[in-house]
Amino acid sequence: MSDSPLRPSSLISTVYGAFVRGSGGWISVADLITLMSELGVESQAVRSAISRLKKKGVLEPERRGATGYRLSPAVHPVFDAGDRRIFASLEPADLDDGWAMAVFSVPESERSHRYQLRTRLTWLGFGNIAPGVWLAPGRLLEDARDMLVRLGLSEYVHLFAAADYAAFSDLPEAVSSWWDFPAIQAQYATFTGAYAPVAAKLALQDGIDAAEAFRHYVPMLTEWRRLPYLDPGLPAELLPADWNAVGARQVFQQLHEVLAGPGLRHVQDVTGTAAGGQP
């Protein structure tokens, strides 16, 4: 894991996204507290995190014979987009796919929107090439469009689909100044250092207990799900020769394949649900 403990709200978001969403989208507070206790999170911290997620519009209270919370319908598209980024977009983009360019201008009186745009574009994987000009692989265009509309920021931004880079700098050198490669690689190295030993250990085991799978999978996925956003997935020919994302992705894929299924079974055992079913 990272040096700092994972936030309970992040772990809860992972539990909902990875398990609860496919099992009806609702879980009782009691069952969630049981699951989170297995991750070392105390009940009061769970309740506080639920309150924060409710205020953010992520969770909505709903009673189904017991007090519980379901995912807000408004965040389902966000989780769906996350699935595409986390599980589908694991390979570098193709240089022939072109670029997505975002150009924005925000009045000084609305500079909070400028900060939000910078933050969100960075989170999507855009690099800053000049003031108000941001670039990303072309496959991120639709995600950027959806995000800007969802957050009410589209009126400030022009989105372009660009075919290629024409001139006047060496593109790999320019790209290395638009994205913070050392910071991205440091994040991948931290993940690999924490979870490659887990993957190696599990590879020697004959099966895994469902509860143990859950305890490994939720922190691992919580750590990982930030990385595909920090990494724009640039074409391989533009990346440093020692780019360490490939090894980190292999560790993630191995652990996902081994842990996700048993982890889901454990959640279903605790909650008394089946995929797509109701408690």
Score class of each variant (00 low, 15 high):
residue 3 D to C: 00
residue 8 P to T: 06
residue 12 I to V: 07
residue 15 V to E: 04
residue 15 V to M: 11
residue 21 R to F: 11
residue 24 G to C: 06
residue 29 V to H: 04
residue 30 A to H: 11
residue 32 L to F: 10
residue 35 L to I: 01
residue 44 Q to A: 09
residue 45 A to N: 11
residue 48 S to D: 03
residue 50 I to C: 04
residue 55 K to V: 00
residue 57 G to D: 06
residue 60 E to H: 08
residue 60 E to L: 08
residue 63 R to E: 15
residue 67 T to Y: 06
residue 68 G to L: 09
residue 69 Y to K: 07
residue 80 D to A: 15
residue 85 R to E: 11
residue 87 F to Y: 15
residue 88 A to W: 11
residue 88 A to K: 14
residue 89 S to E: 15
residue 90 L to S: 14
residue 90 L to G: 13
residue 91 E to C: 03
residue 94 D to R: 14
residue 98 G to S: 12
residue 102 A to G: 08
residue 102 A to C: 07
residue 102 A to M: 02
residue 102 A to T: 06
residue 104 F to P: 00
residue 107 P to N: 10
residue 113 H to W: 02
residue 118 R to S: 03
residue 118 R to G: 02
residue 120 R to W: 01
residue 123 W to I: 00
residue 123 W to M: 07
residue 123 W to E: 15
residue 126 F to P: 01
residue 135 L to F: 05
residue 140 L to N: 02
residue 142 E to L: 05
residue 145 R to S: 08
residue 148 L to R: 01
residue 150 R to P: 00
residue 151 L to Q: 06
residue 152 G to N: 09
residue 153 L to A: 04
residue 162 A to L: 08
residue 163 A to N: 08
residue 164 D to M: 11
residue 168 F to R: 13
residue 169 S to I: 08
residue 170 D to W: 06
residue 171 L to S: 04
residue 172 P to H: 13
residue 173 E to I: 10
residue 178 W to P: 08
residue 183 A to W: 15
residue 185 Q to Y: 08
residue 188 Y to V: 05
residue 192 T to R: 13
residue 192 T to S: 15
residue 195 Y to C: 02
residue 196 A to I: 01
residue 200 A to Y: 09
residue 206 D to M: 05
residue 214 F to C: 04
residue 217 Y to W: 14
residue 220 M to K: 09
residue 221 L to H: 09
residue 222 T to E: 07
residue 222 T to L: 03
residue 227 L to K: 13
residue 228 P to G: 10
residue 233 G to S: 11
residue 234 L to A: 03
residue 234 L to G: 01
residue 235 P to C: 12
residue 235 P to V: 09
residue 236 A to Y: 08
residue 237 E to S: 15
residue 237 E to K: 10
residue 238 L to W: 14
residue 240 P to D: 13
residue 246 V to F: 11
residue 251 V to K: 00
residue 252 F to V: 02
residue 254 Q to K: 14
residue 256 H to I: 01
residue 260 A to P: 01
residue 267 V to C: 05
residue 269 D to Q: 15
residue 275 A to F: 12
residue 276 G to I: 08
residue 278 Q to I: 11
residue 279 P to D: 06
